[in-house]
Write a protein that binds this DNA or RNA. Structure first.
Lengths: 212, 212
DNA sequence: CGAACAATTGAATCCTTTCAAAGGGAGTGG
DNA sequence: CCACTCCCTTTGAAAGGATTCAATTGTTCG
């Protein structure tokens, strides 16, 4: 399985509470008591962890259809709106009669892919994988929006904004992608982009050993 | 919360099946169907992920008292004995009447610390944190055994064995630790070692924002 | 005692970061 | 409507940290 932001999807039931936020708005903060979970209706949300050392880590980006905040006790991450956002908030009770435990396992699986990205991938592979994911999530390869800033991307991929910018320029010069302004791009050569992301073979990721 | 290998502990109940392995023995492989969970009685176990690209990632080391293999469907990791190992295997049914979901959340929390280690820490900080953890797990600061090879450590901390070796030498030359052979060490300056690991302040890790 | 393997150490290389500065839009005020 | 400012992005050049390549030292086990 390739790297992909946590794509936990839960079928809708009766909307509980609609929440609207403007860009940079805060949904909740790390340390808060958990009081429900959220589903993204419109816009992009980022999961942040702030450290006393001053640095920031963006664990995940959530897009329309994604669900976050299923933890019960204390919020481990701060959730912030990247764009204008519309959310639905629901009670924790609702989740139980949906998927009892499977969500956490899905999150775990996603996180394993992320660990692999951080541990085994170069800057180029990370950026390529990120753009690829954006494109796949949106279902288009042309005019794909990049709603988050270079700094946001960098804090997610654990690079500097400079390296992100440089790498995007590199991918452009190689004709794998084309930018239309800093916030929109198109995939020119999907195969090559996959290759650049280190995902050319579907079985490249968790290697299945033969039984014995 | 500092970096620490997954320390999920579950109170013992009636032992089901005792398993003995010699060093380098395999408990199960990634891709296998899950058929129960394990508790370490003696020795050290490593959780491995093998990739088609050829590289290996050691997700976690498990020590006496630790539990692993709680996933239900398919094994995501290969489990191998680092030392001679004694395990107890139990059915999945047993875990349900213990902690329904809390284990996965604990694993998740541990993994977040690990992501931080990979993303935000230098080689020195990683090695220092690793040795610190070994010492804490054993409860001693002198004659702490390092059962795994430098390569194992490297594949866990995402460094090369060379860097691991160099860094250990560095910590020795600075009198933070002292090695008695390659597989045993003592902590000489705990405070400095903590500082080197980037854990001098307990609140250095997940920063708690003030509520509002 | 020698073979085989693990660990250590040195030197050069490479990739990312850091430091520094220029380019480019969006919004404001003259 | 244009000039100016601010901020984000891009790009250049130098520095740094870990890897790679290469070789030595050390340890274990026949």
């Amino acid at each position: 399985m390739a790297y992909q932001p946590s794509a936990v999807r839960i079928p809708l039931c009766h909307p509980s509470l609609l929440v609207h936020l403007r860009p940079e708005g805060t949904i909740y903060r790390q340390g808060d008591a958990a009081n429900g979970w959220y589903e993204v209706r419109r816009g992009v949300v980022r999961a942040c962890r702030y450290f006393a050392s001053g640095d920031r880590h963006l664990t995940t980006f959530f897009y329309a259809g994604d669900v976050f905040g299923i933890e019960r006790e204390v919020r481990e991450e701060t959730m912030e709106a990247v764009t204008a956002v519309e959310l639905v908030r629901r009670d924790h009770a609702d989740i139980d009669k949906g998927s009892p435990n499977g969500n956490l396992e899905a999150v775990l699986r996603t996180m394993r892919g992320y660990v692999h990205l951080l541990g085994h991938r170069t800057a180029e592979q990370r950026v390529a994988a990120f753009l690829l994911t954006l494109s796949l999530r949106l279902g288009t390869s042309t005019g794909v929006p990049v709603p988050m800033s270079r700094t946001d991307i960098a804090d997610h991929l654990r690079l500097t904004m400079h390296t992100v910018s440089r790498t995007i320029s590199l991918l452009c010069s190689r004709k794998l992608i084309a930018m239309s302004g800093p916030q929109t791009f198109s995939v020119l050569d999907l195969k090559a982009l996959r290759r650049a992301a280190g995902q050319e073979h579907p079985w490249d990721e968790p290697f299945q050993n033969e039984h014995h």
